[in-house]
Design a protein around this nucleic acid. Sequence first.
DNA 1: TTGGGAGGCGCGATTATTCACACTGCCTCC
DNA 2: GGAGGCAGTGTGAATAATCGCGCCTCCCAA
Lengths: 208, 208
Amino acid sequence: MANQAVSRARSSGTADRILDAAENLFAEKGYSATSLGDVADRVGIRSPSLYNHFKNKEALYEAVLERLLAEFSAPLLKLESGPVTNERVLFWLETIVRQHHANPNLARLLQHAALSGGPHTNELIDRLFRPMFEPRVKIDGEAISLFENTGLQPWAVMAFNNLVMSYVTMAPMYRDLLGRDPFSEEALEMQLSLIKTLLRAVFEYKGS
Amino acid sequence: MANQAVSRARSSGTADRILDAAENLFAEKGYSATSLGDVADRVGIRSPSLYNHFKNKEALYEAVLERLLAEFSAPLLKLESGPVTNERVLFWLETIVRQHHANPNLARLLQHAALSGGPHTNELIDRLFRPMFEPRVKIDGEAISLFENTGLQPWAVMAFNNLVMSYVTMAPMYRDLLGRDPFSEEALEMQLSLIKTLLRAVFEYKGS
DNA sequence: TTGGGAGGCGCGATTATTCACACTGCCTCC
DNA sequence: GGAGGCAGTGTGAATAATCGCGCCTCCCAA
């Protein structure tokens, strides 16, 4: 599977280069199947040198997660900062789709975690998804959960997250079958168009 | 992640018990992270004894795939045996959803393959999905691809496969968040209802 | 009696991790 | 300004655990 590797232009410090390599490898192979030797090879150093920057394999994994979580938490915070209208949910969804296209590694890591577990899986899930389902205190003091007043059921929220993330985790598989690159610009627009159509269908779906 | 393990009532021969254990482990951890020691432990034998039944790890993996492919190929063959109308596609989709609920292992294995590769990945993809996209020769000799005359674009076919399979691969993650068992009977009905609604939306979507 | 299927033993490779050591740049003190 | 210390970063070697897998032995049922 030729999964695209994300190449960041971040600061060129060794620690960051290790994080980049580890992120791509963890996302591709999962936690336990990723060897520190592989990570070190990609950085161009020997594996004991990794220990100058991270306490151990698990700490490296944590650091990778932390960086990704920070990157991907922004859009939801932005959505939460205002009224949750249909249009703003639509905009939020589009932002997320673009974000996962730009860096598929969070989706891949999360999929590995959902399948096999691994360190800090529960924490990862909580920090990513709890805010979407948890009742929050609004300005008027009334506790509501996000999306509730758009008519979206938690089921649908889940389904759309799956749709967005599985595009990233499964699409490479369809490369040959579809005859085009799932990470191309046209493919992105196609997916956005399809997802928006579906979302509008769900806005009118009152469940069960 | 407490992924449900499929327990089959198949013939109680050692080879079958090995296949059952291996299927669950490969589905959970993926090919390389699954150790033959784990498989043997579940069967209740020592790992060298596995070699009395399978040539090596890869052959065991092949056998697991083969059994799953046989199990999951049936519905599509049935759909192909008649005219591809909207109603029959709907029925086919429902069958597939129920099938993945009953045994989530194929979806999980496929997801691992899509993420990390592994032996025979291309063959696996081909045998599962090629029939859906490949032009076939119909009775009147005209070459059409399945679904073409329902207005479904390959994109949508892909999206729905993702939706069905990612429910199985990701749902365990939502167990706490949703507050109910994603593999319960009610959850299955809920997912079917949502998916059918979406499919009807797609039937009217002509894509851009 | 025979042979399929189980276990014991162990080789060679890989893994995460530790350790002793070398080099580099920088600060400080004589 | 040179000497010395020190923190940071790299290396190769070594260790203990685990892995896939081959070899050989033993047992039990047909």
